[in-house]
């Protein structure tokens, strides 16, 4: 930043005019909106926001609701599996594509195309594929394995894994692409040195390459994690939260209470909890990434 520039509102006025949308977004929508929601989560607003403060009552009710606990549990299962599987699968695919193979572009195009599709489309396709009467289950039964059972969308115990299958199909391509970009940044000399020393390839990957592209892993992790918290469309399209409430997630809980249940206070409290969950991920990351240095 040029320090010699004198102060004054009209200095550099055009740049300030150009930045007005950013300032309004940052202050009014992002900061103002967030604070507003957090403040009103302490009221007993029903159909309309009211300034009747009731302390932590909404939060007590929230954590006492079975539906919210199911939603949180689902998010934890989905989140943990999504992080682990998409990182592992994404990295392995990227490593395979990085072997100087032919048709690399074709493979990459195929692995990434689901990412261009919306969660609604993804959810509906997999709803059809997992349909027990026509989908994978019925095809395998028709092949002769009569007792084959695979109907995750109709089984409350495993429905979240049915959603996970669709989520992985949609999102792994992105992880692969990010990892591949990271692998391409590795100096070829490292590979030569490892080969000269007779280190097996898998060991080179685990002990040398992965630590080297640690920043890529962290960035990818943050991207996956912020996507997980937002998980909403996929659930709406694929299961509608069902059977019953078995595949509910926090984002759907918030939407239903805010715009359908006419219980704004609950919605605000639930969305504040979502915010808290994101902060738990973001703050350590920001600290690690930019800690001390003033740079974004």
């Amino acid at each position: 930043m040029a320090a010699a520039r004198p102060l004054g509102l009209f200095r550099n006025i055009n740049a300030k005019i150009a930045a007005i949308p950013m300032v309004l977004t940052a202050l009014v929508v992002f900061t103002g909106g967030t604070i507003w929601t957090v403040v009103y989560s302490f009221t007993n607003s029903k159909l309309l926001p009211r300034e009747k403060f009731v302390g932590f009552q909404q939060y007590e009710r929230l954590w006492g609701t079975e539906r919210w606990n199911v939603a949180i549990e689902n998010l934890l299962i989905y989140g943990a599996c999504m992080v682990v599987f998409s990182l592992v699968i994404g990295f392995v695919l990227a490593a395979l594509l990085d072997q100087k193979i032919r048709f690399e572009n074709t493979f990459r195009t195929i692995l990434l195309y689901p990412f261009a599709l919306s969660f609604i489309v993804t959810g509906l396709v997999w709803q059809w594929l997992l349909n027990p009467d026509f989908g994978i289950q019925s095809v395998i039964r028709a092949l002769g394995w009569e007792s084959f059972d695979f109907d995750p969308l109709y089984n409350a115990d495993i429905v979240i894994y049915g959603v996970l299958i669709a989520g992985l199909w949609q999102g792994t391509g992105l992880v692969m692409c990010l990892m591949l970009a990271g692998l391409r940044g590795i100096d070829q000399e490292i590979w030569k040195a490892a080969r000269v020393d007779g280190i097996p390839m898998w060991k080179t990957y685990i002990f040398i390459v992965i630590p080297m592209i640690r920043p890529v892993f962290i960035t990818t992790l943050v991207i996956i994690a912020s996507g997980i918290v937002r998980l909403y469309d996929l659930i709406v399209a694929q299961t509608g939260g069902g059977p019953g409430i078995a595949s509910d997630v926090p984002a759907k809980y918030v939407y239903d209470y805010m715009f359908q249940g006419q219980n704004l206070g609950q919605g605000f409290a639930a969305s504040t909890m979502m915010l808290l969950a994101v902060l738990v991920v973001i703050i350590p990351w920001a600290y690690l990434e930019f800690g001390g240095k003033k740079r974004v």
Binding site: A26, Y255, A270, I282
Partner: peptide, 17 residues
Amino acid sequence: ILIFGAFIPYQVMLYPI
């Protein structure tokens, strides 16, 4: 603020908007 705002869940800002 803008960049960090990108990580705030949309649900938090739905109603104020």
